[in-house]
Simulated scan of single mutants.
Amino acid sequence: MKATQFFLVLLSFVLTGTASYGQKNIYESRRFDELTADHQVLAIVPFLTQLNLKEKISTEDNRQLAEREGYAVQDALEGYFSRRKKKKRFNVAFQNTKNTNAILAQNNITYANIDVFTTKQLAAILGVDGIISGSIDLNILLSKGVSTEFSFFDYFNEDSDYGRIGIKISDGPTGKLLWRYEKEINKKTGKNTSELIDRMMKLAAKKFPYDKERKRKKKK
């Protein structure tokens, strides 16, 4: 009986902790409505990736793999917004990522140096009102796919933690942070980059600031 009670208390602690964390991983600026009143188009740029793979690879291989993961997140986000544009009726449009990357390349902005440009600079170069960017820390290659088999004990197993992702939206004209969403990545997150983005954005859907339905509810 004592063992059962201990297990239930432990389970309750884990679930409660998880729920509490989920309520704190989204930030929205108090000035969001003010700063985004005239927003029409957002651009999604490649995500900055930090790889900490267990396998020993060369610095150049690590750089190339990190770049691939960064572009995979960019593609997955564009796919998510494209699939849900009609259903969610966003009040902004999203620049085609092929156009985004082409414009960046024309201005000699590469994955290797994009982090030295400010949000204001990128927005002006891309001709958009805001920038969707972020970072992802991984100890696996998520774009290649991973196992999603999960058990209760994986909560305590470091090998089940794949890293962390942060998505942010910044205002183009001012460079101010408007919205940020952070999430840990593990076996329950999804088996690849597309599933990761799809699941985490669905969790954040009610909090996504450019959703027309959410805007109407805020005004009531």
Results as ranks from 00 to 15, higher is better:
Val146Ile: 08
Asn113Trp: 00
Lys56Ser: 14
Lys206Phe: 07
Ala124Asp: 13
Asn99Leu: 12
Lys168Cys: 08
Asn192Glu: 01
Lys98Asp: 13
Asp154Pro: 00
Gly145Phe: 00
Glu28Asn: 05
Thr4His: 07
Leu177Tyr: 01
Leu53Pro: 02
Lys176Asn: 12
Leu10Trp: 03
Lys202Gly: 09
Leu141Val: 07
Thr100Gln: 03
Ile165Thr: 12
Gln50Met: 07
Leu65Cys: 08
Phe7Asp: 11
Thr4Ile: 12
Leu177Gly: 04
Tyr27Leu: 11
Leu196Cys: 08
Asn186Ile: 02
Tyr27His: 09
Ser29Trp: 02
Ile57Lys: 09
Ile57Asn: 09
Leu11Ile: 05
Phe7Leu: 14
Lys176Cys: 00
Ser133His: 06
Ala66Ser: 15
Phe7His: 10
Arg216Pro: 00
Glu195Ile: 00
Arg63Phe: 11
Val45Ser: 00
Ala105Leu: 10
Ala124Phe: 09
Leu196Tyr: 04
Ile125Met: 06
Leu51Val: 07
Phe153Pro: 00
Lys54Trp: 04
Asn99Glu: 14
Ser135Arg: 08
Asn91Leu: 10
Asp129Tyr: 03
Arg89Gly: 13
Ser133Gly: 06
Asn186Gln: 10
Thr49Met: 06
Phe208Val: 11
Lys191Thr: 08
Ala72His: 01
Asp115Val: 06
Arg89Gln: 15
Leu178Phe: 04
Lys220Gly: 15
Asp137Met: 10
Arg30Thr: 06
Lys183Phe: 06
Thr49Lys: 06
Arg214Lys: 13
Ile197Phe: 07
Lys217Gly: 01
Ala204Thr: 10
Thr49Tyr: 02
Lys2Phe: 10
Arg164Leu: 09
Ile26Leu: 10
Arg89Ser: 15
Tyr162Met: 12
Tyr21Lys: 14
Ile125Leu: 08
Lys183Asp: 11
His39Phe: 14
Lys120Gln: 15
Arg89Tyr: 06
Val128His: 05
Pro173Cys: 04
Ile131Glu: 02
Ile57Val: 15
Tyr155Arg: 03
Gln40Trp: 03
Val41Asn: 14
Phe90His: 12
Glu149Pro: 01
Thr100Met: 04
Val41Thr: 15
Lys56Tyr: 05
Ser160Cys: 09
Tyr71Asp: 06
Asn62Thr: 15
Glu60Trp: 04
Tyr71Cys: 03
Arg199Met: 01
Ser194Glu: 05
Gly145Asn: 01
Asp161Leu: 10
Leu203Asp: 13
Thr118Phe: 04
Lys187Val: 11
